[in-house]
Amino acid sequence: GSAALAPVATAQEANLVINDEIEIVTKAPAPEHMDYVREIFSGWEYRSRETQDLQMDDFENPGMIGVDNARADFDTALGDGEESCASCHESPEALEGVRAVYPKWDEAKGEVQTLEMQVNECVTERAGAEPWDYTGQRMTEMVALISSVSRGMPVDVAIDGPAEETWEQGKEIYYTRYGQLELACANCHEDNYDNMIRADHLSQGQINGFPTYRLKNGKLNTVHDRFKGCVRDTRAETFSPGSPEFVALELYVASRGNGLSVEGPSVRN
């Protein structure tokens, strides 16, 4: 295939500014750990003008409805107890900056945690309530809220130190050719971004925009559900959302976006 050496035409002129206020970096120099890519691009760059525009104004972005739901939920008692997220975290804004550094090594647990795992730790261990479904609506909307307060901040996940082993595992998954079609993430999102695969304009498969509101299914979509869909499309047995494999893959893919802005909830087709 023809590796995409030239950025998309629109990449040069387009600029994502949300609400005339939040400036989003949608293209940046590739992080040093990436061997084959010089510049990284948000998936926003590859969408149609109409889809891009929806993300420029929170009143147009259908994903913001989920953010509003989660704002209400933030103050709602968890389980049978009295405690809500707000009992311990004054406001969603108190969690500003969190999205940008997750997945992150958790010292106490001795593992890399995604934002969903961290939220469930609070829900179960701190508030004593039942865990939320990893890719369920409640969780996804809460993750969208936590992302939204970090919009415009650079993604900056740590890949060294104790997280390195998990990162290496994620990298290996990224380059493994799964399924009967024998396709790796890299075949589509590294070797062929900016090419059309049938009707789809391939992006770099970045996750800085998650959760994404997809016009195709009319809801907020989680990172792991997207991974699952892409692995399934190789005619492979997928991994499950929340599995150690997808956690590792998420850390690795997030690190390929270090330098792009947090953008979620974004709008995609």
């Binding site: 295939g1 399924g179 024998e182 005619r235 492979a236 047995e237 997928t238």
Partner: peptide, 24 residues
């Protein structure tokens, strides 16, 4: 090559049952 092998039946990693995401 990225091009799939159309007449091959073994030697895959995590082969799936068509596009179901289930093992085969």
């Amino acid at each position: 090559s990225i091009m799939p092998a159309f007449y091959k039946t073994t030697g895959f990693i995590r082969p799936g049952d068509g596009f179901t995401g289930k093992a085969a």
